[in-house]
């Protein structure tokens, strides 16, 4: 069972937030592509294994989904778990003084 806490924990890391940014910009990327993006755009030199683990955390939280196309595994952003947060704490409440 996924919880809101899983989503917050998944988001509580700059590398994972950058991975989500990359996947929002363009879905369907490989691990290799995402590693290249982190190095060339953000100067991060994490190992491929570390990035793979970060993607695993995001997938566990439901923020990333993967699918094989041919022999290659691709990653997409999935925003649905974020909706649970704003359902619980609405962004359009205006009763505060």
């Amino acid at each position: 069972m996924r919880s809101v806490a899983d989503v917050f924990r998944a988001l509580d890391d700059e590398t994972r937030r950058l991975l989500l940014d990359g996947l929002v910009a363009r879905g369907g990327q490989t691990l290799f592509e995402l590693c290249t993006m982190l190095v060339t755009r953000h100067g991060l030199s994490s190992t491929r294994q570390a990035i793979s683990q970060h993607l695993g955390v995001l997938e566990e939280a439901g923020l990333v989904v993967t699918e094989r196309r041919g022999r290659t595994k691709l990653h997409w952003f999935r925003g649905e778990p974020l909706a649970a947060i704003t359902e619980r704490w609405p962004t359009d409440r205006e009763d505060a003084p």
Partner: peptide, 8 residues
Amino acid sequence: DALVEDGI
């Protein structure tokens, strides 16, 4: 297979 899976 392992390399192609990760897009390398």
